[in-house]
């Protein structure tokens, strides 16, 4: 506390100084740079198409005309941000939520597979972690394989799981959820093992002086201590889970979902559609991670942690 007070400059900082030292202004500046670079990039990358278009029109075009065409092409190489924003707005707010042209519908399809997979993955991951922590043989034999399997591009299996489960008669949401589950239980297991082992010997000794039974040690010490490790891995896991659900929609010609939307967009060269689907995926990912963050804060507060 005292060092804080000492390091603060004397007197009231100016309004600009406060803005400059916060996060909002820097983030806004960086975002603005990205948008400007994007507009310039749209001119640069679309230049070929624009030249073709203007040559067909056979009228001399000034710079303004050139730029305007570059930012309003039908199937641009790189759509301008406002084109993506308009398409995004159209497909989210103006279309019926149940129609396959609505992004909300696709986001719902992908999001539900993500969540189902995430829930099962969490259960599996936590169970494995508890087994590994309480059983030395599992720790020695299984844990190295779990760590090795993290280095494997598991996502490559996704199309096969879809086909195999399709053969058994499982289609729709379940195969995607299985992929998501498969992807997201690894980080949870690793984080949870670390968390369950995080109590230091002093605390464990204290539990022993209370003559606590193993289950009491688990519920009263290990379990609460693991929460700080569990939630960061849950955030990683739900993001991977979303990737799994999207990739699960790619190879099988799925009709609905953000992945299917990306694939049809790339078949028909609808770049604006691809970009708006990408934005939806990004928003969905952030919302899911933020939701886990909210649960984390509630849980930690419930456990009496200081905010």
């Amino acid at each position: 506390m005292t060092t804080d007070a000492l390091s603060r400059p004397l007197g009231q900082p100016s309004a600009f100084g406060r803005l400059y030292n916060g996060t909002a202004l820097p983030v806004a500046v960086v975002l603005a740079i990205v948008v400007v670079a994007w507009y310039l990039g749209a001119i640069w990358l679309n230049a070929g198409l624009v030249e073709q278009r203007l040559a067909q029109a056979e009228k001399p075009a000034g710079l303004a005309e050139f730029v305007h065409t570059a930012w309003s092409l039908d199937r641009p190489v790189l759509p301008a941000p406002h084109q993506v924003a308009i398409e995004f707005y159209d497909s989210v707010f103006t279309r019926d939520v149940t129609s396959p042209r609505s992004l909300v519908f696709h986001a719902y399809v992908t999001g539900s597979a993500t969540l189902v997979g995430f829930v099962f993955g969490t259960l599996l991951g936590v169970l494995l972690a508890v087994g590994i922590v309480s059983w030395r043989t599992l720790d020695r034999s299984l844990l190295p394989w779990i760590i090795t399997s993290q280095t494997i591009p598991i996502l490559a299996i996704a199309p096969m799981i879809i086909v195999v489960l399709g053969n058994v008669g499982l289609t729709g949401l379940m195969p995607k959820a299985v992929i998501s589950m498969y992807l997201c239980f690894f980080p949870i297991t690793i984080g949870m093992v670390k968390g369950l082992r995080s109590p230091d010997p002093l605390q464990l000794d204290l539990m022993r002086t209370y003559s606590a039974s193993p289950s009491q040690v688990f519920w009263k010490l290990r379990c609460p201590a693991s929460m700080a490790f569990l939630f960061p891995s849950l955030k990683v896991a739900i993001a991977i889970s979303l990737v799994g659900a999207i990739v699960g929609e790619l190879p099988t010609g799925a009709q609905a979902g953000l992945g299917a939307r990306l694939l049809t967009g790339s078949y028909y060269g609808q770049t604006v559609q691809i970009w708006s689907a990408l934005f939806m995926a990004a928003l969905l990912g952030m919302a899911l991670v933020a939701a886990v963050g909210v649960v984390e804060r509630l849980t930690l507060r419930h456990m009496g942690a200081r905010p």
Binding site: L45, V77, L78, L155, K235, V236, A239, L242, V243, I246, V247, L258, G259, L262, L263, G265, S266, G269, T271, I274, W275, A277, L278, A281, A282, G285, M286, L288, V289
Partner: peptide
């Protein structure tokens, strides 16, 4: 940090076009 929540693989079709 936000980008880590985004399924970046999704840009694959765009990169294939470019």
């Amino acid at each position: 940090a936000l980008v880590s929540a985004i399924p970046v693989v999704g840009i694959a079709p765009i990169m294939v076009m470019w």
